[in-house]
Nucleic acid binder design. Structure first.
Length: 444
RNA sequence: GUGCCUGUAGCUCAAUGGCAGAGCGCCUGACUGUGGCUCAGGAGGUUGUGGGUUCGAAACCCAUCAGGCACCCCA
């Protein structure tokens, strides 16, 4: 190995500062997921290539594949939904449905990396497997609202649509199924290129002008949830599947309201198309206006995918949080824990004569549940030890010198302010906890 | 996968074909029980990498790697 050290393109190293945020994101999610009764599941990153092939459509070229000497073909998972389908099929007789499970882990896609998009990325998936009830959809939407709120987001909106509303729009415009895919892709860009841009794109793809206008009118619908649904109901009244879809959305929204989700948090958006490859019912995603970032999460109902593996229909609704995007956006917004160090206190070593006593003090604190970093060089000047602790972002430095040892006390110095106090050993743990509890927003 | 932009010290950036620099950061000391401030001094570069053009390349050309932006698609 003489080459320069270099991480693989599109795959990130997460240094401690970033990891503290990532771990807090995951811990927050785990707490909320379990509060909604979801159980953890973990599956291997590697699957047999055949398991993944034929499930996600044209994007199969993005799957990382490799082959062993013996000719076994493997693939890195592309998402956590297909592995879920495999697990459901494989352990059908051990699982109780409806089954709520969550999974956090990395997936891999050979895409061109960009901001908020990486070749290795973590997702947190939650799914309710084996229920067609609109209450299941509503549970997922309520959960995602709680997760985003718990992470500190205040300005997010969950956009809702339904696969059969989009399908109905295409059908009402008189488009054959073959042309529908292009229409979906065009209208999904609505937020990016606007109504005029979508109109241009549709016209350029050869769709008749009057059909284009009908589509634009429908996908431009915006405003209060019930108003949009009423309007859709009138304009799509001739399409039976769309009518059912609208009823379904009304049921979901009624349940979401019953769960107390604020009206401002949700919006019916006929322009939301998403990757429609396996979605069959409601689809949703959450977006923040500032900073601009693609969707933070996306999901929907897919009643057929798991059946491909299980051999019988298993209706499922779920979503995936994009941990990379949450991480990037939260970093830009300054959300999440601001602490720079996991350690709450730094135990200095005054000199060789106090080394043993300092180590003993550190252990005493650790066993009391306080995260402690110690100095490692008894010969280092105290000033250097303070400097090191402060640079590391440890809020407190403890000094156990000859005077303190003689008096049975410890000096506790708050590095941010420089204030220090001398406390009896008996009161030390209480003082540290107190200072930690009253620490400012930067953990100090 | 396609197109465009960028890459110089740890970081942010100068130097437009002619001696590789600044600010911040870092190290040492002033300061042997107290970091940040101040002052003095110091270290740090294969100009992403490889090739080419040229008397001479950080600069121009080609390739490659990495990052960003727009497509495509998505978390």
């Amino acid at each position: 190995m003489s080459t320069r050290p270099q991480n693989v393109k599109g795959m990130r190293d997460h240094l401690p500062q970033a990891m503290m945020l990532r771990q807090s994101i995951q811990a927050t999610m785990r707490t909320v997921f379990e509060r909604y009764g979801f159980e953890p599941l973990q599956t291997p990153i590697v699957e047999y290539a055949e398991t993944l092939e034929g499930k996600i459509g044209d994007d199969e070229k993005l799957i990382y594949r490799f082959e062993t000497e013996g000719g076994r073909r493997f693939a890195l998972r592309y998402d956590q939904t297909v592995p879920l389908a495999r697990v459901v099929a494989q352990y059908q007789n051990q699982l109780l449905f409806p089954w709520r499970r969550y999974a956090m882990g990395q997936s891999y896609r050979g895409e061109r990396p960009a901001r908020g998009r990486y070749r290795e990325f973590w997702q947190a998936d939650v799914d309710i497997i084996g229920s067609a009830s609109p209450l299941a959809d509503a549970e997922i939407i309520a959960l995602l609202s709680d997760v985003l709120a718990a992470l500190g987001f205040t300005g997010f909106t969950t956009l809702l649509n339904h696969r059969q509303i989009i399908g109905g729009i295409a059908r009402v415009a008189g488009l054959p199924e073959a042309q529908a895919g292009g229409v979906y892709r065009a209208i999904d860009k609505f937020d990016k290129i606007g109504a005029a841009g979508v109109r241009d794109e549709l016209l350029r793809s050869g769709i008749a002008a009057d059909a284009v206008e009908r589509i634009i009118t429908l996908v431009s619908l915006d405003g209060p949830t019930d108003g949009v649904l009423d309007e859709l109901g009138q304009r799509l009244a001739d399409d039976a599947r769309a009518v059912l879809a609208i009823t379904n959305l009304r049921e979901i929204i009624a349940a979401v309201r019953a769960m107390g989700i604020a009206e401002a948090r949700i919006a019916v958006a006929p322009r939301l198309a998403r990757g429609l490859s396996y979605y069959t019912g409601a689809v949703f995603e959450a977006v923040v206006a500032d900073p601009p970032m693609g969707s933070l999460l996306g999901g929907g109902r897919y009643d057929e995918l798991i059946g491909l593996f299980a051999g019988r229909p298993i209706p499922t609704v779920g979503l995936a949080f994009g941990i990379e995007r949450l991480h990037d956006v939260m970093t830009e917004l300054g959300l999440g824990p601001q602490q720079r160090s996991v350690a709450q206190a730094f135990v200095t070593i005054f000199g060789a004569a106090q080394r043993a006593a300092s180590l003993e003090l550190a252990q005493q604190l650790r066993h009391a549940g306080i995260a402690v970093e110690t100095a490692l060089d008894a010969g280092e000047r105290l000033s250097r030890q303070f400097q090191h602790a402060d640079r590391r972002g440890v809020p407190l430095a403890l000094v156990l010198g000859p005077d303190e040892l003689a008096a049975g006390t410890v000096v506790v110095k708050q590095l941010a302010s420089g204030q220090q106090q001398t406390v009896a050993r008996a009161g030390l743990i209480e003082l540290i906890r107190q200072l930690h509890a009253t620490a400012g927003p930067d953990g100090r």
